[in-house]
Nucleic acid binder design. Structure first.
Length: 542
RNA sequence: GCGGCUGUAGCUCAAUAGGAUAGAGCAUCGGACUUCUAAUCCGAGGGUUGUGGGUUCGAGUCCCGCCAGCCGCGCCA
């Protein structure tokens, strides 16, 4: 917020000088000030003057400006700003009165977030967990910053994999009834497959023993789907993922969207037949090979239904669609962009977040997760072991592009090795301050005595508070939630330090106590908003 | 072979559109609880940013080559 103001002022001064070019206002190392700009350095080639002289011209314009305590030139020509205490105190007062008056969120459009999409053929994995948390947090932040958000999960209930699962369940069903039917090749081996078979037996006894046809397949398919959906729901609830909608692949076939898309592509001459299959001319739009839409056995590829899904997303009126996948799906991107172009859907409609993989560790030991052998650690087990808060925090705390090393021992530990509690503790600490104040007969009055705040650490904290909206914007621009976690840790750290150095509740100095409680109050507000967005609990007491 | 991501302190990670002396946490070592919660705080050590070139006032960041790791390159999803 403050940064935007500085940018604005600088830009208008730049225009007065008769120039227009890009520059940055950033937060430098503390010794240099609160904010800093390279406007004079970048301007050298336009002004045709040395950066330091240009800087001087700018600095003159700032003399006597109420917002700043100091504007100086340093190094090769940086202009450094030190914001006045008065300005910070005004900011704090406004913030406490109504945070939304200082949070600079515009009204944005509508956005459809798709994530956690999985074949309903087995339990959600740890990898899905990362994806779900990234999606959930991004969705929360988008909503908070003024977007209309729909969080959606796509269920691939129409393809070959779900049929394989049905057949696998049927094989287990026969085995349970005493016939040694082998699991199909590429089938599913996990224990949950046996559980589903048990359900079928409970309801139908040996009705389908050694009988396999299309009708039987659809029976087993629906048992499998129901069971797996229930498993998904349980797990998703445990990790606190709030989907607005589950979208079934099969609905695109049933409501004719797939056909509609095929018709459009055909009418544009973008499909052709070869080897008994129907192909899409992806190579016309992107640097990739053509792709199959309909296989030679007449069934649809995942690609075709996914095109239909995205066509439908666009038709549903969203401004932007964000898809979150594991990085193993990056091969899917070019063909999707090609399809969007083919359907005349604007280029900036579809955005992807590809997150890197998760490695589970127990101390130094890597935990093997092999899906085929059915010996994976499921997301469910992970949450049971480390808890929702730790799981979410760990998934949200690193850049989506960074391979995540998830240390189970660390996530579980209740010691200060664990970064999860740091922020929560700051929140709990402040809550206890207020209890303490109350017990000592200090009656907290919002916005009173703020003029008594004057030391460096107090100003640092207010500055950090003032950066909240900008950090959230960054989360949505860069599509990575880790900026928020970093921010909250920094704020918590500043507060812990402040707490250690200053007595906040002090009956010998009631007015100062009230001033400091105001500051603590604002910190707690930001912490709880931030923790909320990440989806972990803001505790009153620890 | 081609493509995507990654390589930063012993470990896990940051570094805000190319900015100033590359920062945190953990671990290690040394301090701080008769005083608002020590799940905290203070201090110390720890680096040729994988490697070799290039671009410029300035490179962890951009370009080219090389090395290493992960992931793709299906009529799987």
């Amino acid at each position: 917020m403050i940064r935007q103001e500085i940018v604005g002022i600088l830009r208008s001064h730049l225009m007065e000088f008769g120039y227009e070019y890009d520059f940055v206002v950033e937060i430098p190392e503390e010794q240099f000030g609160d904010f800093s700009t390279n406007i004079a350095l970048v301007g050298a080639k336009y002004f045709k003057k040395p950066p330091k002289e240009i800087a001087k011209d700018f600095v003159e314009k700032f003399s006597g400006h109420r917002m700043f305590k100091e504007v100086t030139i340093a190094g090769p020509g940086f202009i450094n700003f030190k914001v006045s205490n008065e300005f910070y105190r005004d900011f704090l007062t406004k913030f406490i009165q109504n945070p939304y008056s200082v949070w600079n969120f515009k009204r944005h459009g509508s956005i459809l977030m798709e994530y956690g999409s999985a074949n309903p053929t087995g339990p959600l994995t740890v990898g899905h967990g990362r994806q779900v948390v990234i999606g959930d947090v991004l969705g929360n932040v988008f909503k908070f910053t003024g977007w209309e958000v729909t969080k959606e999960m796509y269920l691939n209930d129409a393809g070959r994999q779900i049929r394989l699962l049905a057949k696998s369940v049927w094989a287990r069903y026969n085995q349970l009834l005493g016939y040694d039917e082998p699991i199909p090749e590429d089938g599913y081996n996990g224990e949950y497959v046996v559980d589903i078979a048990r359900h079928v037996i409970a309801d139908h006894n040996d009705e389908y023993f050694k009988i396999w046809n299309d009708d039987v397949e659809s029976v087993f398919k629906s048992y499998a789907l129901n069971e797996i959906s229930r498993m998904f729901d349980t797990t998703l609830e445990k990790i606190g993922a709030n989907f607005d909608n589950v979208f079934k692949e099969s609905s695109l076939v049933n409501d004719g969207t797939v056909k509609e898309v095929l018709t459009i592509l055909e009418s544009k001459g973008l499909v052709y037949e070869e080897d008994g299959a129907l192909w899409f001319r992806a190579s016309r739009f992107v640097n990739d090979n053509d792709k199959v839409l309909i296989k030679n056995d007449g069934s649809y590829t995942y690609f075709l239904t996914d095109i239909a899904y995205h066509y439908k997303k666009y038709k549903r009126g969203y401004n932007i669609a964000v898809d979150i996948f594991g990085s193993d799906h990056h091969g899917h991107l070019p063909r999707m962009y090609a399809a969007m172009k083919a359907l005349d859907i604007p280029e900036d409609f579809l955005m992807f977040v590809l997150h890197q993989f998760v490695t589970l560790k127990r101390g130094d030991e890597i935990v093997k997760m092999s899906t085929r052998a059915g010996e994976f650690v499921t997301l469910d087990e992970l949450i049971d072991e480390v808890g929702k808060d730790a799981a979410r925090y760990f998934f949200a705390m690193v850049d989506v592009n960074t391979h995540l090393n998830f240390d189970l021992e660390l996530a579980k530990s209740k010691t200060d090795e664990n970064p999860v509690f740091y922020v929560q503790y700051a929140h709990a600490r402040i809550s206890s301050l207020f209890e303490n104040a109350k017990a000592k007969g200090i009656n907290f009055i919002p916005r009173e005595n703020i003029e008594l705040l004057e030391n460096e650490s107090e100003m640092r904290i207010i500055k950090q508070i003032s950066l909240f909206d900008e950090i959230l914007e960054r989360v949505t621009e860069k599509l990575s939630p880790h900026y928020l976690a970093d921010y909250l840790e920094k704020l918590a750290s500043l507060f812990h330090k402040y707490y250690a150095e200053n007595k906040i509740v002090d009956t010998d100095n009631m007015r100062l106590s009230n001033a400091r409680l105001n500051l603590a109050f604002a910190v707690r507000r930001v912490l709880s908003e931030g923790l909320n967005l990440i989806g972990i609990s803001a505790l009153e007491r620890m």
